[in-house]
């Protein structure tokens, strides 16, 4: 077992046995060596299930949306990207900082579980696309840190390259590209449900009256759903890439999100969501000198 996993267990044991928290959110090994899954611990006996490895993809901050009214403090393990989710939820008044005990884990980047299918443990596995362009491997908010700080190093730029390709397209070509993607969507909502920026009490897509989004699976409805979601998380997306990883149809959703982040930066200056809880999100307030290109 790796050193970080052992330290995680000791921290969880300590917090639970001293009653500082009554719930710990971490990861455990799942169905295969290349699958790690979220773990909820409320008993000291279970702490030895905790692990941290290159397949701990889940951004556990999402679960805090459900735990906003939990009766006691919750301990949560976060990677760099996940930690930005904590700040975002605090900023949106979903949770309060004092409700969570944040245990940060500097992250060297994860592996792609789909690439590991059919391989034996130990064989080389591709880096996860979502981690290629990571700029915040170290947690930006934490009560305690496990492991050594790491330097942000780009391991590839598949998403940036795709955005560049899309930017060079004509409007029609771009429309056709996204239409082909959205046509494949099965509307399982894994992207929304895994996203820590999706914290609405009732999602617009679930409203029956009025039915803003029809239930039929067709290009028009699917397009409406994805563009609405992209615009809704705009300025709040923390770039954890979970939507794209969770999508069973492998839609390049982060190209959409990162393009919007790029545009926001051009319009309103640098605005990494979930870094500074005091800084207002770019689309959550206005300034008199905001650009008004569309007017």
């Amino acid at each position: 077992m790796n050193e970080i996993s052992l330290q995680m267990r000791e921290i969880a044991r300590d917090l639970l046995s001293k009653n500082e928290v009554n719930l710990v959110l971490g990861w455990e090994k799942g169905s295969h060596w290349y699958k790690s899954a979220p773990l909820f611990i409320n008993k000291v006996e279970d702490v030895d299930r905790l692990v941290f490895d290159e397949f701990c993809h889940n951004n556990l901050s999402k679960y805090l949306v459900d735990l906003a009214h939990h009766e006691a403090k919750v301990a949560i393990f976060v990677k760099g990207c996940d930690s930005r989710g904590i700040n975002r939820l605090i900023q949106d008044n979903v949770i309060k900082r004092e409700q969570v005990y944040v245990i940060g884990i500097p992250c060297r980047g994860l592996k792609d579980p789909d690439d590991a299918v059919g391989k034996k443990c130990g064989e080389p596995v591709k880096d996860a696309v979502k981690c290629q362009e990571c700029r915040y491997p170290n947690p930006v908010v934490h009560d305690i840190m496990v492991g050594e700080q790491v330097n942000a190093t780009a391991r590839g730029q598949e998403t940036a390259a795709l955005i560049e390709k899309l930017e060079k397209m004509t409007q029609d070509e771009r429309y056709n590209y996204w239409s082909r993607q959205f046509e494949c969507c099965i509307r399982c909502y894994a992207c929304r449900n895994v996203c820590p920026a999706c914290s609405c009490r009732e999602c617009i897509f679930d409203r029956a009256v009025p039915d803003w989004l029809g239930k039929a699976n067709n290009l028009a409805e699917n397009q409406f759903m994805h563009l609405t979601r992209a615009m809704h998380v705009a300025g709040r997306c923390i770039e954890c890439g979970e939507c794209e990883r969770a999508c069973p149809m492998n839609l390049p959703l982060m190209a959409l999100n990162k393009k919007i982040i790029k545009d926001i930066e051009e319009l309103f200056g640098e605005n990494d969501a979930g870094i500074d809880p005091e800084k207002k999100p770019p689309l959550g307030h206005f300034e008199l000198n905001d650009p008004e290109k569309f007017m």
Binding site: L39, I186, R187, C188, A190, R192, N193, P248
Partner: peptide
């Protein structure tokens, strides 16, 4: 059920 996200990836696949 604690970790379930309530999406339909399982049922639709």
């Amino acid at each position: 059920s604690r970790k379930c996200l309530g999406c339909a990836a399982c049922t639709y696949l």
